[in-house]
Amino acid sequence: MSEPILSGHRLKKHFPVRGGFFGRAAGTLRAVDGVDLEVMPGETLGIVGESGCGKSTLGRVALGLLPPTSGEVRFEGRDINRMGRSARKTLRGDMQIVFQDPVGSLDPRMTVRQTVTEGLLIHDVSSRREREQRVVEMLGRVGLDSTCLDRYPHEFSGGQRQRIGIARALVLRPRFLVADEPVSALDVSVQSQVLNLLVELKNEMRLTYLFIAHNLAVVGYISDRVAVMYLGTVVEQAPSALLYERPLHPYTMALLSAVPQAHASGRRKPIVLQGDVPSPVDPPSGCRFRTRCPIAQQVCADVEPPLVEHAPGHLAACHFPGESMPNAAVRAIG
């Protein structure tokens, strides 16, 4: 077994919530609340969950963009939050991120050339000619020709802007890439182009991905393993085929059944969960999902279920894993 390229142990990220007259701390928002993370070299780990589940915060903690409240993140065995300046700078070249918003994540006053070159300048890639060559090469690789070099972001479509963002992230030849909802702002036909591109680039550049998204079909398509997050914790984690075939956690089952399917054979009656996601400032006792769980019992309110391995590589945090749900059509899809 090789060593994980990135690992996190009992990661927590809490944000103080200010309120009241003098902005006193009124509470704590537990965005990430005890997550173990292990990403093997060359794999794609998908993180899926609804808004506010902490998936983006986790991505930022994994990159060291946010220091964890507790726990540590290790990249190739070294704690990234206890590094000297120069080691950290090298690290930045090895770990990169692609953002969701192809408009907001590009500086409107910088040309494509400047945007993509900036990283190379910071990392002292020596000659001007070499920089130029690498930028053109990278842009070509993501499907943009050199006529784009001196144009500004507003001149491009959403899909093209996302390609620029990918070129910007990959020009430094990182080994680890966090993709935070990279395709959710795009139309479906453009989405497929960008997904295919990410898969090709991963194979060519031997990248490791942490792929964050709310769309289960997209995450399942691109990932080797998927972790499902709910209110700051991982409730289930498994190789993607297994997760979709045999989900154990009721939340995963509900999520899967709620994804509307276009074709008749995949259509079924969704399990409609009642109510909204509780606030991460004041999560429910015991199992965090119990307030919306159709099969919750007393024990779920009293004891927080640990993340337990039920099959090789298949972990779930539930007192009643795999229990069938009230709606009969839940898992039977065929």
């Binding site: 079909a217 399942g220 398509y221 993607s240 899967l256 399917q261 276009a262 074709h263």
Partner: peptide, 12 residues
């Protein structure tokens, strides 16, 4: 359009 959306159960 139909062929461009990843569906649950598809692999890359």
């Amino acid at each position: 359009l139909l062929a461009s959306i990843p569906r649950i159960g598809m692999s890359r």
